[in-house]
Design a protein around this nucleic acid. Sequence first.
DNA 1: CCGAATACAGAACAAAAGTTCTATAATCAT
DNA 2: ATGATTATAGAACTTTTGTTCTGTATTCGG
Lengths: 196, 196
Amino acid sequence: MAAKSKFAERLPVLEDFIHKTGRAPTLDEIRSLFKVRSKNTASIIAGKFVEAGTLARTGTGRLAVPPQARATPLRILGSVAAGFPSPAEEALLDTLTLDEYLIAHPESTFMLKVEGDSMIDAGILPGDTVLVERGRTARNGDTVIACVDGEWTMKHFYKDKSGIRLEPANIKYTTIRPKRTLAIEGVVCSVIRKLV
Amino acid sequence: MAAKSKFAERLPVLEDFIHKTGRAPTLDEIRSLFKVRSKNTASIIAGKFVEAGTLARTGTGRLAVPPQARATPLRILGSVAAGFPSPAEEALLDTLTLDEYLIAHPESTFMLKVEGDSMIDAGILPGDTVLVERGRTARNGDTVIACVDGEWTMKHFYKDKSGIRLEPANIKYTTIRPKRTLAIEGVVCSVIRKLV
DNA sequence: CCGAATACAGAACAAAAGTTCTATAATCAT
DNA sequence: ATGATTATAGAACTTTTGTTCTGTATTCGG
């Protein structure tokens, strides 16, 4: 045996559906998702997923995405100096999801891991993750992902009368003035560091 | 005139519902949301929101959350050195939402704006946003939000035989050994910097 | 092989969700 | 004031969605 249980087989398919549609499937969609012909079977399958917490139900019995799988609206506090609000104030706080905050163009945005310390003086450390928007036009001072003479690198972008130059944020490295080929592949829109 | 249009008045209410439930309302829910008694009215209101892109429809006419308002699964590239994948490779990329990546405990996580340069040597700059998890136990080396003698501050946390000390990441400031009161209000889980 | 448990099919059913029709009130420009 | 436009109410109706019942395969341990 050790054959994967039906449940385990179906779980990733369901998760994929939720990712793609942003909502829970209906029983009919479960039928076509798992190639079962009976609504009863679909209902039983749905029940298992609800039990497992992969799906939830609305007040009227419809299938829904459970809270923990949803985009989290984070409460926004003022500043470090202000500290945490009292429970009474907390209800008044504005909320924002990280997506809303950081991603303007979902189709062209990528996550990229930072290697090396060439941007360390700009507070971009090795191991950080950056969100890169592809196809965006770089402006002076932007942090860009560029391909210079076949090498991929992250630098500050500047353009003046004498052409384009790429400046690292680390005195150990020197400014690059591309000789042969230069492609600005994307602009770094945000920096993310996971601490714990 | 200049009175807010009904539509503009209702928009934040709807957005709040979507935020809270993670799904689109039904016509009946629209009725109670906007205090209208007719299903027809609700249907018309829904139509307006669909037109405006605030809501969408499933293949069977049910109301849904539109793609741009959903959690965005970002494609994960390897590292800066590897550059961007070719279109052929792109389909194979793993995806992750920022929520999945950064938020372990949604109920106790807050966004907080960084003021001051006390953590600058740890790559946390003024203007950055940090995600703070409240109620988490701090471990040696963690970055914490603390309330020392009535003052809110962000520091590195250390605990040894002589007690707790809070160290800034900036030589301009000195280590704090709390005299009267110390409350570790939260642990900084991640740092976010929006560049463009 | 046998019985129990599980998975599935098919159909009838009940409830929910959305559409459409008619009619009344409110608003607004002229 | 008047006609046009818009917002709303109420009800009938269609479609979708989910439940439940009955019966048939399939699997699995002994």
